[in-house]
Design a protein around this nucleic acid. Structure first.
Lengths: 140, 140
DNA sequence: TCTAGGGCTTCCACCAACTGGAAGGTCAAG
DNA sequence: CTTGACCTTCCAGTTGGTGGAAGCCCTAGA
């Protein structure tokens, strides 16, 4: 299989597949004309990567997941551990975004959004808040 | 004020402030020894930037917000528009993360996480799913 | 047989928003 | 006079690719 074929199969852009080779996630063979030659196992691995990335796993996580996938004697605990850590990162990120969202929604709500210059959003951004860094410092 | 002072005041690292100068967000003066000299207005602007960035606004958004902030004749509608677009991006991101989270939590739940190699997480990652790109293609 | 087109190759640059570190100038205190 | 805290610039690296240029390779059609 050439890169185009495996790209169609895995749903990944050819560029991305070359990048994955660069970072050592796949190691396709080369045919005499210099073209990459992908085996079934490479195609499979790329699909695995596509799905892992879609779940937000980092490239490093993917590297570890693939190693575990290929290790017949793995302990599922190791996989679960990676997944749980990732889950935690996702939860943190969601919490962070929700907090931003709440503040922002509140400000947007308070803003008339008309031709007049008065704007609670700008007013808020321009105002010191109780829990900011520089106040933490002076509080010590 | 030197950069260290304004860093303490704004809560931003000195490196970040230099970066903001690089991208044209602040324009401190220079004293004869080459040190950056920040006015009150610069410190104020940097604090504004810190709060905007904390709400997730991009540097470009910040540039626009500051321009509006400094424009006495702005229409609050312009500010609200930027904020609403950002709110939408945040909502999209939250939705995406929640979907990841749901899938991942389900898989983590199903995994024993013990010494045995059997792992539903890996099994799922290794399996084609109905709605993947390569199947969309063949379905046409 | 030539040519046009796609597909493939490499390499370099760029994106956001910083962050780390090296090499070196400046300044106030002891 | 030296030490140490600041400050300067510049270069490189981070994450995960994406875009484009220059240039092979291969096949089908005139």
């Amino acid at each position: 299989m050439n890169i185009g074929d495996v790209a169609a199969l895995s749903g990944l852009p050819a560029k991305t597949i070359r990048y994955y080779e660069d970072v050592g996630l796949v190691k396709p063979l080369r045919s005499t004309n210099g073209y990459r030659t992908f085996r079934e196992s490479d195609a499979h691995k790329l699909a695995f990567l596509g799905r892992s990335r879609a779940l937000g796993f980092s490239i490093e996580d993917c590297r570890n997941l693939i190693a575990l996938y290929e290790d017949e004697k793995r302990a599922s605990a190791e996989v679960k551990d990676i997944a749980e850590q990732h889950l935690e990162r996702i939860d943190d990120k969601i919490a962070e975004l929700k907090e931003m969202r709440a503040t922002l929604a509140h400000l947007v709500d308070a803003c008339a959004g008309d031709h007049r210059p008065d704007c609670p959003i700008l007013a808020d951004l321009a105002t010191k808040h109780r829990d900011e860094e520089q106040l933490k410092n002076t509080a010590l």
